[in-house]
């Protein structure tokens, strides 16, 4: 999917710039082929295709902050370049690993929400993998904090759930 959008309209579209407006009101200029990777932007551009001048279009992305967008854009750009070439999956995986390795837990969560909202599924998949790795064999409390989730269970409910599979709670990592 990534390669088709970038290779078909190679030079002309990649030079065109689109402006994305983040939730905090910042405007970011991106190549059109990168913008097209974001589903809301793609839909917006399709619906405004009668607009002759792409440069005049400002795509609002009210669910993503500028900080997150500015991390996402280089990733998507490089990933597009990578997948346009006949490279091995290994290389893409190495690239993804490199991108995710140094992400803080908070950033990971923000990116995951953004990737979900923007419909960047290949990134979402990678981020899910990383999240799964990071919460493996961790205590429930750790995972809640990791994901910023409040405990909605009553103590009774929690005790009941614990009692169903006590073996699952033995020997988890120290928080």
């Amino acid at each position: 999917m990534a390669s088709s959008s970038s290779s078909s309209s190679c030079s002309s579209s990649s030079e065109k710039k689109i402006t994305l407006k983040s939730s905090d009101g910042e405007a970011l200029n991106v190549e059109k082929n990168v913008a097209l990777e974001f589903e809301p932007a793609k839909g917006f551009l399709e619906d405004n295709s009668e607009e002759a001048d792409d440069e005049a279009i400002v795509v609002p992305l009210p669910n993503v902050s500028a900080a997150v967008l500015s991390e996402l854009i280089p990733y998507v750009k490089q990933r597009l370049e990578l997948s346009a070439k006949p490279v091995q999956k290994k290389l893409i995986k190495a690239f993804d690993d490199q991108f995710t390795r140094h992400l803080s837990d908070d950033k990971l969560g923000e990116l995951m929400l953004a990737a979900n909202y923007l419909g960047v599924n290949y990134l979402l998949d990678v981020l899910c993998d990383v999240t799964a790795d990071r919460i493996k064999n961790k205590s429930v409390e750790y995972v809640r904090e990791f994901l910023g989730i409040q405990n909605d269970f009553t103590p009774e409910e929690e005790a009941e759930l614990r009692a169903q599979c006590p073996w699952a709670f033995e020997g988890v990592d120290q928080d």
Binding site: S139, V140, V143, Q150, F153, W167, F169
Partner: peptide, 12 residues
């Protein structure tokens, strides 16, 4: 499976 059984407790 062990993790999944435990993660059920995180939230509904």
């Amino acid at each position: 499976p062990r993790d999944a059984s435990r993660l059920a407790l995180v939230c509904p």
